[in-house]
Design a protein around this nucleic acid. Sequence first.
DNA 1: CAGTCGATTCACT
DNA 2: GTGAATCGACTGA
Length: 213
Amino acid sequence: MIAAPDRTPLTRDFFDRPVLEVAPDLLGRVLVRDSEDGPIELRLTEVEAYAGEADPGSHAYRGRTPRNSVMFGPPGHVYVYFTYGMWHCMNLVCGPEGMAGAVLLRAGEVTAGAELARKRRLSARSDKELAKGPARLATALDVDRSLDGSDVCGEKADPFMVLTGTPPRPDQVSSGPRTGVAGEGGVHPWRFWTANDPTVSPYRAHTPRRRRT
DNA sequence: CAGTCGATTCACT
DNA sequence: GTGAATCGACTGA
């Protein structure tokens, strides 16, 4: 059986473009996460671009480290980081190898496997909140550092795939400053979301943490 | 090797 | 709106 057009997996070429071009183009795409518990599918509604070593907001800003090395590798792979001692966040590496571009997946609408996502997101007050925020998205999909480096393209795509989906019309794509990014990195409008979508997370400026006593 | 802080979320006022 | 939770990565000495 031929796959429906909107169920076609995105190829490596899709990700092998400048990250600022790929990021808005990811809206409306469908991320599939397979696991032993079952599949979950997510329609992406909010992303942020991180533009490599020249971007002060990026984990790649100070060069390659053990944590961020996947960002420097080939496009079409998953970069997962652990933050605030509790949470994971998930990116898709974009752009040519060595450029360290990545797109943070900030929010989406769970379009399949909601029952499973609810079990992992007990604090969610409605299904709109299952993946409303990058750490919530990763929690709903059961993503952690063990999945860092996963390939999302071709035969080796496991446990993720990204399908063509239905991108929003260009006039429905909004952009603005990235959430929680400090200093100069905060000025660029490199956050992209689908206009008026209820699963998009609220914007917050960077908040410096109070000093511990 | 100690100090600092984070691409956040949640409970509570 | 405010503050706590919680720990690994990175920095600079």
